[in-house]
Write a protein that binds this DNA or RNA. Structure first.
Lengths: 401, 401
DNA sequence: TGCAATCACTATACCGGTTAAGGTGTCAAT
DNA sequence: ATTGACACCTTAACCGGTATAGTGATTGCA
C-alpha cells in the first residue's frame, strides 16, 4: 500500500516473485495485503489458515464455508447455488481481488485464451508503415472485450512462421491465428488447414483456401483510381507495384489492366518491393520513357514519397508534368510537398472485423468471408489535370541517386 | 473480375482437434461439439492402444510401459532414468509429435511463459515510427530462444494500461513486462512496484524507480550533435523537442543546454509532440526568429521531415541557410531531399538486451541497469557549414497552413 | 402419508504437466 | 547374512480451475 513518491534512491526491495514455500512470516508481503488485513481484524497470532499468496477459489471457499465447486458455480453464473450464496461469494471474491488463474482455466477447458499474429518480414522492412500497428490496435480492441490476448511475433522467414504455428498449436498456446501478407499458393494456408487450427486470412478469399477471409475489394479501388485519373485527362499511366508474389499485388495489377482496357487508356506496370529505394528507381525508369506517363500510381506510400523525390531530381514537376497517387494513406503523405493524393482506409476497423471473425470461428460458428469497406480516395495536391501533350520530354538529367 | 471466385463449398473437415488416429469414419464430425473433447465417450474402443488426440505424457508413458513421472524425468533431462530409457522416451515423443501443453506446465510451475508489452498511444500516433516494430523484433528474437512468448497490446490511456498490468498479474498471464515511453513520476512504475511484478524499463534509470532499466546515454548523444554542429560553425541552434513530459525529452533538453554552455553557443528550445504538424509549425516559428538559427535539431524523424518542408515553404535553403539533424534514423530520412543527417541506433539489439534483462529478472537474478550503445551520427546532406552571417534574413513569406 | 422431484450443495474426478517421497533390485562392503 | 548405497522407477500429491455424480433436506402432489 505504499504508493508514496519514491524519494530518490530506494534500496531496491520489491517482491520476490515467488512467494512459495510455507509462508515463513514474510511480514510485508506487498502483494494483496488488503485481503488478510480485512478479514483478520488483528488476528490471533500464528494463524494457520493464512492466505498469503494470490487468492484462489479454494481460499474463497474456505472463507465462505463452501466447497470449490460451489464457489465456481457462483462465480460463473452457473445454476446450483442460491442467490444469497452467490452474492456472498462475489463479495468475497471482489474483496480479496480474485481473478481466475488463466493457466488453470486453460488447462481445464482446453482453450488458450489467446490468438496469435505472426508477421514475417525482415526487421528492416517493417516499420514505416503504420498498417500493422493500427491493425493490431483494432484487433486488440475487440479481443480485450472478449477476455482474449494477442500473441505477437515477428519471424524472419515463412518456414519459421509455419514452425511456430505448429508449435503454438501443439502446445495449445493459441486458439487461432490471423494470417497476413498472403502470397499465391501460400504454404501457410496449407499448413493451417492440415493442422485444423482456426484461422482468419486478412486478405483476398482467392488465396485463403478453406479458411475464412476478411478482405476488401482492391479491384474496385483500382477502378476508382483509374476513373479519377482518366477524368483528369490522363491516358498513359504508370504503376509501381509491390512484390508480385503477394496476391493482392496481382489482383490490383489485373484490375488496373481491365479498367484501362475499358476506359481506353494504357497502364505501364513496373514492380517495386515497397521500399523507398525501389520506389525511386522504378519511378526514374517510368519517367524516362517516351512517351512519358502523365500519372503514376504507387502500391504504398513509401514508394510514392520516394517517387516524388525522383521526379524532382529529374526536374519533372508534380503535379504539373506528372500526377502521383499513393495506395495507402499515412501522415507521410500529408507532409511531403506536394501532399500526396492517397487511398485511405480505416485499418482499425479492419482489425476489429478480423478479430470478430476469428472469435466466431473459434466458437465454431463457421460463417463466410467478411468484405470490408474499400479504400477512399483522398485528393491532395499531387494529382491534377494531365498536361496537354505538346511539350516534349524534359531534357534528360544525368542519373543520380 | 476474373479473380477466380473460389468454387463454392468444399466439404470442410478441419477443426476437429483430433489428428490422424484411427480416422476410420467419424461420420458425425459435428463441428459444434462444444463439450470438452477430452471426455471419454465410453463406447467400445475399436482400437484401444491408439493415440487419438494430441499426445500427452500419459500416452507416451503407456507406449513406453512407464509412468508419467518417469516420462517427465526423461523428457526434461532430469536424473532418475537410465540413458536407455530416456532415449526410448525421446524417440516415442518425437514420433508422436509431443509438445508440452503450455497451460499444464504453467499451472504446475506457476510461470506463464510469456512477457507483456503495452504501448499506450492513440492509434493515430502509432505508426510511422519503425521503432516499436524493430524493438519487438529484437525482443522476440531473444524470447523465442528461451521458449517465451510476447503478449502485445495497445491501449488508449495509461489507466487502462495499469489496469491491464494488474489483471495480467492476477491471472498470471505474464511473468513480467516491458515498460516503454516512460514519463516523469510515471504511475505505471509505482503500480508495478506495488504489484511486485518483474519488469524492465526501456528508458532512463532516473525514472525507473526500483525497476531495472535498459537505456542509452542521451546526454552523450546530445553532446555529440552539438559538437558536430559547432565544428561546422553553428552558434545559434534551434531544437524541436518531443513531449516535455517524457523523461528523455527532459534529459536531452538539459544536455543540450549544458553542452551549449560549455561550447559557448546558444540553443533555442521549442516543444513539438512528434507529429508532422507540430514539426512544421515549430520549425516555422524558429526560422522566423531574428537572428535566425543556422541549424535545427529534431527529436524524431517525422518532425524533421516536416521541418524540411516548412523551410522550403519559407524559401530557406537546407543546408545552405539552415542545417537539419534528426534524432532517430529511418528510411524516411534517406528519401527526402536533401537526405537528413540523423542519429542512428540499433533498435533491434536494444530489444534483445531488454529481453535478456527481463529474463534475468524473472529468474531472480537481480542485476543492475543495462547501458546500451549510444546513437551514432550519420552525416547526410542536410547538415553543412554555417553560412557566414552576412546576409540578413530572407524576406518573410506570408504565413501558410 | 408416501414417493418423487427440486434445491443447494458436497465429494470427487478430471485437465496435463511437475515433483517429493517411497519402493524395488543389484552390488559392494562389513 | 546384514547393511547400506545406489540407480531406476512408481505412487501420489499437487497447481487452480471446471464438470459430473451424489447427498440430505425440503417441497410437490396424489
Amino acid at each position: 500500500m505504499r504508493v508514496t513518491e519514491r524519494p530518490s534512491r530506494t534500496p531496491r526491495r520489491r517482491g520476490d516473485g515467488r512467494t512459495g514455500g510455507q509462508a515463513a512470516a514474510p511480514a510485508d508481503d506487498g502483494v494483496a495485503g488488503r485481503s488478510s488485513a480485512a478479514r483478520r481484524p488483528e488476528g490471533q497470532p500464528s494463524a494457520p489458515t493464512e492466505t498469503a499468496r494470490r487468492p484462489t477459489i479454494a481460499d474463497i471457499a474456505k472463507q465462505a464455508g463452501l466447497t470449490k465447486a460451489a464457489v465456481s458455480f457462483a462465480l460463473n453464473g452457473q445454476p446450483g447455488v442460491s442467490e444469497q450464496t452467490r452474492s456472498r461469494v462475489l463479495d468475497i471474491a471482489r474483496r480479496v481481488g480474485w481473478q481466475p488463474n488463466s493457466a488453470a482455466r486453460a488447462l481445464s477447458d482446453g482453450k488458450a485464451g489467446a490468438f496469435g499474429l505472426v508477421v514475417d518480414r525482415p526487421a528492416a522492412m517493417l516499420g514505416v508503415e503504420p498498417f500493422f500497428m493500427q491493425l493490431i490496435s483494432g484487433i486488440q480492441a475487440e479481443l480485450s472485450d472478449n477476455q482474449m490476448s494477442l500473441l505477437f511475433t515477428i519471424t524472419q522467414d515463412q518456414a519459421s512462421e509455419i514452425a511456430l504455428y505448429r508449435s503454438w498449436w501443439a502446445q495449445r498456446k493459441v486458439d487461432g491465428v490471423f494470417v497476413v501478407d498472403v502470397r499465391v499458393a501460400d504454404a501457410r494456408i496449407a499448413a493451417l488447414e492440415e493442422l485444423g487450427m482456426p484461422a482468419v486470412v486478412i486478405g483476398h478469399p482467392s488465396v485463403a483456401g478453406s479458411l475464412p477471409a476478411v478482405w476488401h475489394d482492391d479491384a474496385l479501388v483500382a477502378r476508382t483510381v483509374m476513373e479519377h485519373l482518366v477524368a483528369l485527362g490522363h491516358t498513359l499511366i504508370g504503376r509501381v507495384s509491390g512484390m508480385p508474389e503477394l496476391r493482392h499485388t496481382q489482383i490490383r495489377t489485373e484490375a488496373f489492366g481491365e479498367a484501362a482496357g475499358e476506359l481506353g487508356v494504357t497502364v505501364v506496370d513496373a514492380a517495386g518491393d515497397y521500399s523507398g529505394d525501389s520506389g525511386a528507381l522504378v519511378t526514374e525508369e517510368l519517367l524516362r520513357r517516351d512517351p512519358r506517363p502523365t500519372a503514376v500510381v504507387y502500391d504504398n506510400d513509401l514508394m510514392a514519397v520516394s517517387g516524388l523525390g525522383a521526379a524532382r531530381r529529374l526536374g519533372i514537376d508534380v503535379p504539373g508534368d506528372v500526377s502521383m497517387v499513393a495506395w495507402e494513406d499515412s501522415p507521410l503523405c500529408e507532409l511531403v510537398h506536394p501532399p500526396l493524393t492517397a487511398l485511405h482506409r480505416d485499418v482499425l476497423t479492419y482489425g476489429v472485423h478480423a478479430a470478430r471473425r476469428l472469435l466466431a470461428e473459434e466458437r465454431g460458428q463457421r460463417a463466410g468471408n467478411v468484405k470490408d469497406a474499400a479504400h477512399e480516395l483522398v485528393r491532395r495536391a499531387s494529382s491534377g489535370p494531365a498536361r496537354r501533350r505538346s511539350t516534349s520530354t524534359t531534357s534528360p538529367v544525368p542519373e543520380s541517386r
